[in-house]
Measured scan of single mutants.
Amino acid sequence: HNLTITQGKLFFHYNPKLCLSEIHKMEEVSGTKGRQERNDIALKTNGDQASCENELLKFSYIRTSFDKILLRWEPYWPPDFRDLLGFMLFYKEAPYQNVTEFDGQDACGSNSWTVVDIDPPLRSNDPKSQNHPGWLMRGLKPWTQYAIFVKTLVTFSDERRTYGAKSDIIYVQTDATNPSVPLDPISVSNSSSQIILKWKPPSDPNGNITHYLVFWERQAEDSELFELDYCLKGLKLPSRTWSPPFESEDSQKHNQSEYEDSAGECCSCPKTDSQILKELEESSFRKTFEDYLHNVVFVPRKTSSGTGAEDPRPSRKRRSLGDVGNVTVAVPTVAAFPNTSSTSVPTSPEEHRPFEKVVNKESLVISGLRHFTGYRIELQACNQDTPEERCSVAAYVSARTMPEAKADDIVGPVTHEIFENNVVHLMWQEPKEPNGLIVLYEVSYRRYGDEELHLCVSRKHFALERGCRLRGLSPGNYSVRIRATSLAGNGSWTEPTYFYVTDYLDVPSNIA
């Protein structure tokens, strides 16, 4: 807008934040220059609390790290170098490059900038070799853009010569660093050979998330399962459950009422301010606690030095998902009996873990797994792929695949051998790939016309006998059925096997 004052003059007093240069501009645009008398524009009460600059400061050096910015700028000295009290560095987070010096300023003089007072450097006698002032900004957020400017702080001049310097606002972004852990990993099994893994992005990506790394490792069953005799009275049979499938998407929606109208769909109840505040506090606490764990609990591995020492970490090797089922080394339970199943799973520490690289999504279907087997899954978020990966501390989750139908069934015939004193040795093959492992066998036998009897055969007993022995049988026709019990439950009964026990007292003698 054009402003013209045809008559009258300007009068400025007691404006401590208004620089004289701005008042002189007002004289020019209003056409009143030359009308004012000496005392109409006070030299001592206008701009006496402001830094009124008329020179431009330029930054000469900028260096960044993930949490620091090192700045240096060209030296500046007023005509009387004693008038320079120091520099004021202003900075704040700036997602967009549209910041002005006066953003967030209120009537009390406060604003949204963080201000650092910096002492002037030592003055050199040689004007050509003056030290460049600077400042190291610490405690910054990774991968965050900051708006920065600097200006001088000078003393009051009796001659009211307006001098000083100020830089333009520059924008500097800190470097990326390792992201925080992925949030809320959930693993479920939808079949006997697959596990579905879902997660949420890290709360602090500290860069642009480029991919996720998912490692999985087959877990050995508890050692007590191999040692305890679950045929003993009072000892509860062990059981394991597989990871249940995901709930429906509708039930997972946030901010939804727990109660549904019987007449149909209901609208979600909005969260109160107290609920939102509580969630923010919980989120802040979780982030602080995660940072504490990362800094205190997890110790970084030592990389190899120039002395030739090897990095103890196993090298990563990509495998196809079809090879995942046989990740671990199978060892027989008892070496003397080769027909026992290889369900003991000690994992070799030198073995390469299978892994998958996930790009542009937060889910993965891990296939080719062994049925009813526990897996430990390790999830890392990465925001750099080359020249070397920059990934987060791992988040861990466990899951067990679903049982395989008929995996616990005894394959092959049940054979028998009759000894003296009416002892019958029953023999059968253990299931080759049971659900988890076989903890015991149930032997059901009966003599024709009598009630059915049951015998429990422990895992250890089966390994020693290759089956079991029935003792003290009365003469007669017998039928026997056997079924295995694994961590997933009972298998199917075998087809009945028949044998006849004679009275050993009636056996004919070869003595003449």
Rank of each mutant, 00 (worst) to 15 (best):
R466A: 05
Y478D: 00
Y259D: 07
Y478S: 00
R471I: 10
L470R: 01
R481C: 04
M427W: 06
G306M: 14
C267G: 03
Q252D: 15
R447K: 05
E279D: 12
F298Q: 15
R318E: 11
C231R: 02
R447V: 06
Y498C: 10
V345Q: 14
Q429S: 15
Y445M: 09
D291I: 08
I438T: 11
T415L: 13
S268E: 12
G325P: 07
V397Q: 02
H294K: 12
P300Q: 10
R390E: 02
S239K: 15
G207M: 13
P270F: 12
P354C: 13
K278T: 15
D311R: 07
P245A: 06
K406R: 06
G207K: 02
N383C: 11
Y375Q: 02
V414T: 03
A463G: 13
S304K: 15
E465L: 12
W493T: 01
A335F: 11
G374C: 15
P312T: 11
Y441S: 01
G436F: 08
W493C: 01
I418M: 01
E282G: 14
N422E: 14
R471L: 08
P338G: 10
T401Y: 00
F419Y: 09
E430T: 08
C468S: 03
V393G: 03
L228A: 13
S344P: 10
S492F: 11
S342F: 10
L277H: 12
S243P: 12
F226N: 12
Y396L: 10
E465D: 05
A399S: 10
W216G: 04
Q384R: 06
R218G: 14
D229E: 05
E247L: 11
Q429R: 04
S344H: 12
G234W: 06
R286L: 06
E356V: 13
P338A: 09
V457Y: 05
E221H: 15
H461L: 10
P338C: 09
I209K: 15
W242H: 11
N208A: 05
A220L: 11
D408N: 13
N421C: 02
G489H: 14
V443W: 01
L473D: 00
V345G: 06
T502F: 04
D204V: 13
N295D: 08
D273M: 10
S203F: 13
Q275V: 08
S479W: 06
S257G: 07
C468R: 02
E495M: 03
K317S: 12
T340Y: 12
E442G: 08
Y448P: 13
P332W: 07
P205M: 13
P238Q: 12
Q384I: 06
P434G: 04
D273L: 09
Q252G: 14
R483V: 01
E388F: 06
S251M: 15
L464S: 09
R286E: 14
Y212A: 06
Y478G: 00
G472S: 08
S274Y: 07
L453F: 07
Y445L: 14
S341Y: 02
T373M: 08
F462A: 05
F298V: 06
D408K: 01
P312A: 15
G306Q: 14
E221W: 15
T401L: 03
G322M: 15
I366Q: 01
Q380G: 06
S444Q: 11
G368C: 04
P300N: 05
R459G: 07
G207W: 02
R301C: 11
S305V: 12
